[in-house]
Nucleic acid binder design. Structure first.
Lengths: 345, 345
DNA sequence: CTGAAAGCGCTTACAG
DNA sequence: CTGAAAGCGCTTACAG
């Protein structure tokens, strides 16, 4: 293992100069630079992270921006927990961290959080690009400042994020189709319930539905699939719509909720006589798990959101400290959760 | 953030003495020791890992012992890959690692690997305690030398391992019962196929079967479950036994393989006319995945063996370097793998 | 453009 | 039993 000093001696320069070349700092003649660079390459030099960090006195700040979660039960609690766990770990390496949150229904709060974040001058950013257009606009500022950023949970294609961590939504919807049809007989009907609010943003939900529809198109042509759009997704609206659908259609035996709101449907199903309705949704937060455990929800598909937050922070950390280039895309798992394995995921 | 120097000044001693107290090194008077310890506790002192590691010049060796895998397709390939990945990461921290392997059918090779391992004088050991009695005998040597060790995949209760990482086998078997009955009509029969070899060691397989049986006892009493024991589990024997069972029993519609050998059963099922047999097994290695993809195997239950190896090494690493005390037990996930999510686990 | 030197915080061999 | 000092390998402020 070569050290900077070794290289310096061999190149007949001082350690300071090697350091300058190594980090592309200015003030080195081209000739010296080339001479040193050649040796660095020759020996495949890797600097000692411990010595480097110790001398550098850890001046990095990492900022995170994700949607806020009001309660323990909400989905966004999980990435946040992952982020916090990673922060705790890297704190001992002297990294500063600043967490920002926005209301996922409020574009302005997204922009505001972002501006606040810029003020702390982060060296790296973890974010969930919730609103497409605004994201393009805001990340341009990061690009200008050469601040690296990682997306979690939601992806935006052809941007300059150094990495994305999230699920293949199409494939997860396809799997949902398969799981729902496990208990479905021929000629039955299936309902997809989605929120109007998300039709424009959050492309993941549309992709899930596409995948879901593909499964039935490919495999199970005798099953009819119907989509309904809800305004508010509150308890009353859900009850009203479902009551209508079930009364109009005797064959309706399955419901697919491509968001994390399956528990809303479960709530309603518990108020009506047992009808053997299969219900499948996304995300294993407390509200959903409750109905999974009493088998009103049959399956949940989960993507390990905790890990998304955790990995996201770790990726930026390693990028900054160890110069480790991440993959452009990390596929989150497509986990199948049932009553029986819900405690072991 | 206090440093050793800060503490030294306040205690009116030298940094060297604080270091001695911090690491319980000999040669400090009780009085001094108490004085320093009090300050250390008061400030909740955490030493700078970078400075410490740099000065210490990383003299740690970690040893691993797991069963060998002959091919890419085998289960034990995965923990090994996880181990190798972790090793690669911690190498840059200057940790030495030595990997040892044994033949899981050969008790002597287990002992031999263990003795070889002791010769390298490791500071921490990762191992799979395959053979119960021998494990008790061998780990006693580690205890005597105060070398910490972690178990992965197989647990042995009431031993002095600092941690265990593996699956709750009972619960996974219970889930297997549920999954198998999803497509099973009333009054059908289910077969459990196991190897005689593993009846004594590898308690996990027995636990899986217990969980599996419990599910049917609790939920689905109309289904009969039968167990058969194979001698060699080779292709011919599997074919012979299955041919016999299917010919004797028209109602046989499901097969449960509580080991990683489901592909052996799948191999046979492909040779006979399509009978709508549900097949469920363990572990997503290549041989199994092949039959999962063509739907001869319906479900695989997996435990993320890669992560077991990876985490195991990381736990020892953090224990040695950062003095981080691990949990006694880490539950591996109980993942449900189907054709549709097999690329996203 | 370049080098010598001090410093990051901990560890250790040496002296007493 | 205790301290002073050198050293781990990199970074940086300063001098030239």
């Amino acid at each position: 293992m070569k050290t900077i000093k070794d290289i310096a001696i061999e190149a007949k320069v001082s350690p300071g100069t090697v350091d300058r070349v190594l980090h592309n700092r200015p003030g080195v003649s081209l000739k010296t630079k080339e001479k040193v660079q050649k040796l660095l390459t020759k020996y495949n030099f890797e600097k000692n992270v411990f010595a480097s960090t110790l001398a550098f006195k850890n001046k990095f700040t990492i900022a995170t921006i994700i949607p806020s979660a009001k309660s323990e039960k909400e989905f966004w609690q999980e990435p946040d927990k992952g982020i916090k766990a990673a922060i705790k770990e890297i704190q001992k390496y002297g990294i500063e961290t600043q967490c920002f949150y926005f209301d996922k229904y409020d574009l302005d709060s997204y922009e505001k959080a972002f501006e606040e974040m810029l003020k702390v001058n982060p060296n790296g950013v973890l974010m969930t690009p919730f609103f497409y257009k605004k994201t393009v606009e805001l990340t341009a500022k990061l690009n200008a400042k050469k601040i690296p950023y990682v997306f979690i949970n939601i992806d935006v294609e052809s941007m300059d994020n150094i990495a994305f961590i999230g699920q293949n939504s199409y494939q997860s919807g396809y799997l949902a189709g398969k799981l729902l049809s496990l208990k479905l007989e021929d000629n039955k009907e299936v309902l997809i319930i989605r929120s109007k609010k998300y039709v424009d943003n959050h492309g993941a939900i549309s992709s899930r539905i596409k995948g879901f529809l593909s499964y039935f198109k490919e495999k199970n042509t005798s099953v009819a699939v119907k989509e309904v759009y809800l305004e508010t997704f509150d308890t009353d609206e859900v009850a009203m719509i479902l009551a209508k659908e079930f009364s109009e259609n005797e064959q309706l035996k399955g419901v697919f909720v491509p968001s994390s709101a399956a528990f809303k449907v479960a709530e309603y199903l518990e108020t009506i006589p047992k009808k053997e309705i299969s219900l499948i949704g996304y995300d294993s937060h407390e509200d959903n798990i409750k109905y999974l455990k009493n088998e009103t929800i049959d399956f949940l598909i989960s993507q390990n959101p905790y890990e998304q937050g955790y990995m996201g922070v770790k990726i930026i950390f390693e990028y900054l400290l160890f110069n480790k280039i991440p993959n452009k895309k990390y596929s989150s798992p497509i986990h199948i959760i049932t009553k029986e394995n819900s405690d072991y995921i």
